[in-house]
Amino acid sequence: MSNRVAVVVFPGTNCEHDVVRALVGLGGQAELIWHDQASLDTYDSVVLPGGFAHGDYLRPGAIARFSPVMAAIERFAASGGPVLGICNGFQVLTEAGLLPGALHKNRGLRFLCETVEVEVASARSVLTSQVETGTRLMLPINHFEGCYTCDASTLQMLIAEERIVLRYVENPNGSIESIAGISNAAGNVVGLMPHPERACDPLTGSNDGSALMQAIAGISQMAAKS
């Protein structure tokens, strides 16, 4: 049995259908839920997709953090449930304090829309549980505010606790330590700027996101290959 995945839709979210399509295409089950939902009891994992939640007004994720669903996500995460934030979803998770640090404007003030190489820096997280550390993946990025920033002590903690999940091979946006994705201490909450859901079909140029999205869908790699 695969996970029942809740894909959260805020006003302004725009990658929710890509996420559902990727998860279902891999053999998983996914449902869209509106941001006013206050319970996640019937779901096994949660994805916050990319887009512009609440118009990204003030700062990306600043208003989304106060949506009713966020209290439910906080409880869900505290109980060990897998939570994945992709791009804008990562920004929402940092604003909500579920992940440390912040996503700031890209170095060079450029909106980036390209496919980049990232390296799996830790296989401890729920997202990377089916890939080996050191694996390189081609994943699309599509962001203006993706420069990961945190203070020195937070960075030391992330390194020591193996919470840097993905690193850019060539840093495109100025992120500290080339960070493309991080996790919480337990590894069940993960945020990343690249879009693995857009790399789940060879037709789109890369299938490298499948190993990541399978883990969220709750499908083992063996099952997916057979």
């Binding site: 106060f66 440390p100 912040a102 920033t149």
Partner: peptide
Amino acid sequence: RLLANPVI
């Protein structure tokens, strides 16, 4: 609480 993100 809202207007500034204390991290940055």
